[in-house]
Write a protein that binds this DNA or RNA. Sequence first.
DNA 1: CACCAGTA
DNA 2: TACTGGTGG
Length: 338
Amino acid sequence: MGTDIGDLLQKRKIELSDLSNRVVAVDAFNTLHQFLSIIRQRDGSPLVNSRGKVTSHLSGLLYRTASLIEAGIKPVFIFDGKPPDLKSETLSRRKEVRETSREKWANAKAEGDLEAAYKYAQASSKVDHEIVEDSKYLLGIMGIPWIQAPCEGEAQAAHMVLKKDADYVASQDYDSFLFGAPKVVRNMAVTGKRKLPGKNVYVDVKLEVIDLEETLRALGVNRNQLIDIAICVGTDYNKGLEKVGPKTALKLIKKHGDIHAVLREKEVEIEGLDRIRELFIHPEVTDNYEIKWTKPDSEKLIKFLSEKNDFSAERVEKAAERLKAVSGARQKTLDQWF
DNA sequence: CACCAGTA
DNA sequence: TACTGGTGG
């Protein structure tokens, strides 16, 4: 997903508490996708309510966001709008992967191969319309602001950090750098012990931040050149060049200056190159938004999560209390929260 | 993912 | 108190 330039980036490990009082623009699609893949039973089946509807994302949003809030973080979720036309190939490829994974999941389950079943179940996760709508509603009654992006959520999030309405973009993907995000925080939804795919090994996943300026300085390139590097490797809007990974792409762009020169040298073309660059440099974003944290609505939380989605009322109340404790403390400090 | 009860 | 393994929905 996104672009594979992670190896080139300078990552610094941090703790949740380091983000206290910081506004974090969370890539909602990315976060929901992670919840849907991670919050599952041993055989790979997601959490569902009594009507059979998936609720893993609701569980993740409720408990994880409560932890963020408790750590003093001010999250605002950014939802994707209409994707650019150039993304359609990527989107149909993702769909294909999901569908074949769903079949393989069923087969693995039938054969009793739990390891494989889990892996394919994860890869079959889909953030559909209903999941997005449920998530927006839940965030609303939790008192967490969310914003509808006109186009790519990561572009909107990056725009908000550039405008200083937020301090960080939170996403696992690196695309927000290409949209100019000065600071990105990764692993916000997945901290703790995680199993490495395929192996029986666990790693401790820590939050990490990446600073765009620092990275560009270390690489000795500018932002436009980083975009060109990504295009060489491949982005959501284009296939990369044959046998060119991040390291080679960096070398090529530093040697030739920009991607046009690289393509001339290699005698290849990338369809729609200028449009792809433009999507990163001048993405469609909006300034029409409001970021405001409010008190959670316990009654609606119980109604929605407990009555409609079969969550334990006790647990929902506890989470609501955690959210409320912080909004109460905020009010007292006259911090400009409301 | 977080929660929770059982265990050391 | 810290860790683990099962469960949540």
